[in-house]
């Protein structure tokens, strides 16, 4: 695209059609024409987006723009919210996620989620991580469960800190440790996609850096969709970035391009801090 005089080529603020290429050459999940309503209120409007295999995609945008609502559609966590309606097409490896025959339990085992606020169960650290493998019968023996717990905690970078305290309650950990425990819990069931809903918003910079390292390591194995309010974080961890505004997907593109050469006026205003 011609990048001559910036302001003239930029898409006008009023345009609501997605700018940039929302497809991915090797898609894991494809979403077409997605809308989410809470009662009469429309939270996400006609969004098309692909989630690629082993990519990290960041969803950014001001509060209330629909990025979390969109994220929660991907493993149907919106089902539990009363009055929430989801329309559009979601396909993971060709299977319709919202097919009435779709087993939500299996879907959630494949698409894990880490929430904004760490929510470890009021159980021991060990039981927190072993929870998923146990309900899915991933290990038949105690030793098998122990192995899964150890691998997951190691991958979440928490093993060294808690290996001697596995029977302490998960709630006794610090905030950053709790969030990593939640990550360990999510990856213990061997998901293929990990959704992260502002995973660092309650954490200090050191714990945040730790989580970001973790995202880097995990991206070798999983597709990761991360919702974040921190543009630096999106720039650091993601390969692609999608900018949402008031329920519309405004712009999608390679992260460095979105941050250096945003094509839509709204995107530019947001990342240059003209509004939040």
């Amino acid at each position: 695209m011609n990048q001559g005089s910036a302001d003239k080529t930029r898409v006008d603020r009023t345009a609501r059609k997605t700018v940039g290429d929302f497809t991915h050459p090797d898609p894991r999940i494809t979403c077409r024409n997605v809308s989410v309503h809470y009662g009469d209120k429309c939270a996400v409007r006609n969004v098309d987006l692909d989630i690629g295999r082993n990519e990290v995609i960041a969803l950014i945008g001001p509060s209330g723009c629909g990025k979390s609502s969109f994220l929660r559609c991907l493993n149907r966590m919106n089902d539990t919210i009363e009055g929430c309606r989801v329309s559009g097409e979601f396909r993971m490896d060709g299977n319709d996620l919202y097919d009435p025959d779709m087993d939500v339990v299996l879907l959630r085992a494949q698409v894990g989620i880490v929430f904004q606020k760490p929510n470890p169960f009021p159980k021991s650290i060990f039981d927190n991580v072993a929870y998923g493998p146990r309900i899915h019968g991933l290990a038949q023996t105690r030793a098998g469960v122990e192995e899964i717990v150890e691998t997951s905690l190691k991958r979440a970078g928490l093993w060294e800190e808690v290996k001697d305290y596995l029977n302490d309650p998960g709630t006794s950990l610090s905030g950053g440790q709790q969030q990593r425990l939640c990550v360990a819990r999510a990856i213990a069931v061997n998901p293929e996609v990990v959704l992260m809903d502002e995973p660092c918003s309650a954490l200090d910079p050191i714990a945040t850096a730790r989580i970001e390292e973790l995202i880097d390591e995990l991206s070798e194995l999983y597709s990761i969709v991360i919702v974040t309010h921190s543009m630096q974080q999106a720039a650091r961890v993601s390969e692609r970035t999608a900018y949402f505004h008031l329920g519309d997907l405004i712009e999608v593109g390679a992260t460095d391009e979105v941050f250096t050469k945003p094509q839509h006026k709204l995107t530019e205003d947001y990342i240059t801090g003209r509004f939040g």
């Binding site: 339990v105 959630r108 929430f115 470890p120 929870y131 069931v189």
Partner: peptide
């Protein structure tokens, strides 16, 4: 609710 969400997000019924 976060407890229930956490559990259901792991694929618990």
């Amino acid at each position: 609710q976060a407890m229930r969400d956490g559990s259901e997000a792991l694929g618990a019924t």
